[in-house]
Structures are given as C-alpha cells and as structure tokens.
C-alpha cells in the first residue's frame, strides 16, 4: 500500500490508499478523483488522464508518452505526465499528484 494525494486546481486534496501494481490512473478512477477520465483505459492513446507530478521517484515520460502529452487538452508543463503510465509501488508512498485546470 502507498498513500497518494490528489490535489485539485482549487487546492482541495484527497489522500487515498493505492494498491501496488495499479497505475496512478487506475487509483484515481477507483476513488472517483475529478479530472481523470482515462477514456482509452491506459493505452496511452487519449491524454485524458493528464496530471502534474513534480517528484523524481516517478522517472521520466517515455517518448510515446511525451508525444501523447502534446495532444493533452489542458496546459502542458515540464511536470506533465499521463497517470496511466506510472505504476504504484511502495516506494511512491506520499506521492502528490496535481490535476489540471479544466479547459472551457
């Protein structure tokens, strides 16, 4: 188990117990976190699980992930990640995930 904290653009946050082996995206869906849609179900094909993570423990985005991030709806930053591409491990305990501001 690892504790993951999701922070909404307005500042509201929710800390959940994530199952090891799940992706951050699956963790978000399991806890009905606003802002993560994951339309393609984790195939790195839709960028609707976009989030911001400023934490070295999650490594860097792969080339394919970077290409898909270019297609994200919301503002893309240096800390942008697709949450489907990060697997929860005990080592990620305490990770903070910021959700993007929804685009009108």
């Amino acid at each position: 188990m690892a504790k993951i904290t999701f922070v909404q653009p307005g500042g509201a946050s929710q800390t959940v117990e994530a199952r090891e082996g799940d992706s951050i995206m699956q963790t978000a869906l399991a806890h009905s976190i606003d802002g993560i849609f994951a339309e393609c179900g984790g195939a790195m094909m839709c960028a609707t699980c976009h989030c911001y993570i400023d934490d070295d423990r999650t490594g860097a985005a792969s080339e394919g992930e970077q290409d898909m991030l270019e297609c994200a709806e919301d503002e893309v930053r240096d800390t942008s990640r697709l949450s489907c591409q990060i697997t929860v491990t005990e080592g990620l305990d305490g990770l903070i995930v910021h959700l993007p501001v929804p685009v009108e």
């Binding site: 849609f37 393609c40 195939a43 839709c46």
Partner: peptide, 17 residues
C-alpha cells in the same frame, strides 16, 4: 457514466475530441 461509443484501448477514437 462513461459510454463506449469512442471505444477504449489503443484504438480509442482519434476523432473523439
């Protein structure tokens, strides 16, 4: 509830947006 009209997985509809 999410529907499946745009599919899911690698072939998720490229024109959904």
């Amino acid at each position: 509830h999410p529907h499946q009209s745009f599919g899911s997985g690698p072939h998720h509809c490229a024109g959904a947006q």
